Simulated scan of single mutants.
Amino acid sequence: MEIPLPEQQHFRSNASMTHDGPADHAEQNRRFWDDQAAAWHGPLARDHWAQVEPSWGLWATPESQVSLLPDDIEGMRTVELGCGTAYVSAWLARAGAHPVGIDVSEKQLATARAMQAEFGIDFPLVLGDAEKVPYEDNTFGLAISEYGASLWCDPYQWIPEAARLLVPGGRLVFSRYSPLFALCVPSEGPVSTTLSRTQFGLTQLNWGDHVEFVLPHGEMLRLLRACGFVVEDLIEIQAPQPARDYPEVSADWAQQWPSEEIWKARLAG
Rank of each mutant, 00 (worst) to 15 (best):
M1Q: 03
P6G: 13
Q8R: 15
R12C: 01
S13L: 10
S13I: 07
N14E: 07
A15E: 04
A15S: 14
M17A: 14
H19D: 07
H19P: 09
G21W: 02
P22M: 02
H25A: 14
Q28T: 15
N29F: 14
W33T: 06
D34W: 05
D35P: 08
Q36P: 08
A37K: 08
W40P: 00
W40L: 03
G42E: 13
G42V: 13
L44T: 02
A45T: 01
D47Y: 09
D47H: 12
Q51H: 14
Q51W: 08
V52N: 07
S55W: 11
G57Q: 06
G57Y: 05
W59Q: 02
W59F: 06
A60T: 13
P62R: 15
P62D: 15
L69W: 06
L69T: 02
P70F: 08
G75N: 06
R77S: 00
T78S: 01
V79P: 01
E80Q: 00
G82S: 12
G84D: 05
T85H: 03
A86Q: 01
A90G: 04
L92N: 03
L92Q: 03
A93N: 05
G96M: 09
V104N: 05
K107H: 02
K107Y: 08
L109I: 00
R113E: 04
A114N: 07
E118S: 14
F119V: 05
I121H: 04
F123T: 03
P124E: 11
L125D: 04
G128I: 13
D129C: 05
E131T: 10
E131P: 05
K132C: 07
V133W: 00
P134S: 00
F140Q: 00
I144G: 00
S145N: 01
E146N: 14
D154E: 11
P155V: 07
P155C: 13
Y156T: 01
Y156P: 05
A162D: 11
L166K: 01
V167M: 05
P168H: 04
Y177K: 12
L183H: 04
L183K: 02
C184H: 14
V185F: 10
V191P: 08
V191N: 12
V191H: 01
T194M: 10
L195R: 07
G201V: 10
G201T: 13
L202V: 12
L202C: 12
N206C: 09
N206K: 03
H210F: 14
H210Y: 15
F213M: 10
P216S: 13
H217M: 09
H217I: 10
H217A: 09
L221S: 11
L221H: 07
L223M: 09
A226R: 14
G228Y: 04
F229H: 10
V231K: 01
E232R: 13
E232W: 10
L234H: 06
I237M: 02
I237F: 12
I237V: 13
Q238D: 10
A239G: 11
Q241F: 11
A243Y: 05
A243N: 11
R244G: 11
P247T: 15
V249P: 06
V249Y: 04
D252T: 12
P258E: 07
P258T: 11
P258H: 12
S259T: 07
S259F: 09
E260I: 08
K264Y: 09
A265P: 04
A268K: 14
G269N: 09
